[in-house]
């Protein structure tokens, strides 16, 4: 297996990683860089638990190879809060009761933040559309949708 030296920015910090060609971004984040906040729920692009931002876009990190991310800016759930103070979307989800088991939460946070970045005042329908790739089995989504609306007001 060929290895590749790639350079990328993760949560604002530059990183150089030696990765085999077949390693997904998810596996690199979790196993090479110890960023285990990003979760693996299906490894097939179906559940959205592994969503991270790649150059501002929400991406299933199980469906993209690490080598493809050479030169990219990555944001994971660990990069949302700023030195211990929660980002508005994190604060809003906590306030609304939008976390239960928390396994889908990292992906939901990233997908929601990516939505708010491109659309600071989304309608309920737009929020549902943005979250349709993120499965949650605990909450029924109701509070999460409320939280994204609340976060939009907080920013």
């Amino acid at each position: 297996m060929a290895y590749h030296k790639i350079t990328l920015t993760i949560n604002g910090e530059p990183e150089q990683v030696d990765v085999p060609s077949n390693m997904t971004l998810l596996k690199m984040l979790r196993e090479r860089l110890g960023k285990t906040g990003t979760k693996n729920g299906c490894a097939a692009g179906e559940c959205g638990a592994c969503t991270v931002m790649v150059n501002g876009e929400p991406v299933n990190s199980c469906m993209i190879l690490a080598v493809e991310c050479d030169g990219s800016e990555i944001v994971t759930v660990e990069g949302l809060s700023d030195h211990g103070s929660l980002a508005p979307i994190q604060e809003a989800i906590m306030e609304s009761g939008g976390v239960q088991c928390g396994f889908c939460t990292p992906g939901i946070l990233i997908a929601s933040q990516a939505l708010l970045n491109r659309n600071p005042n989304p309608s309920e329908a737009e929020i549902r559309e943005a979250l349709v790739g993120n499965l949650c089995r605990c909450t029924g989504y109701v509070r999460i949708i409320e939280a994204v609306q609340a976060a939009a007001q907080m920013v």
Binding site: T76, M94, V99, G102, T105
Partner: peptide, 17 residues
């Protein structure tokens, strides 16, 4: 509000994997 949420919201909660 839930005591456990800050850990879950920042990727700091330990799951088996």
């Amino acid at each position: 509000k839930r005591n456990e949420d800050p850990r879950l919201l920042t990727g700091q909660a330990l799951f088996v994997d």
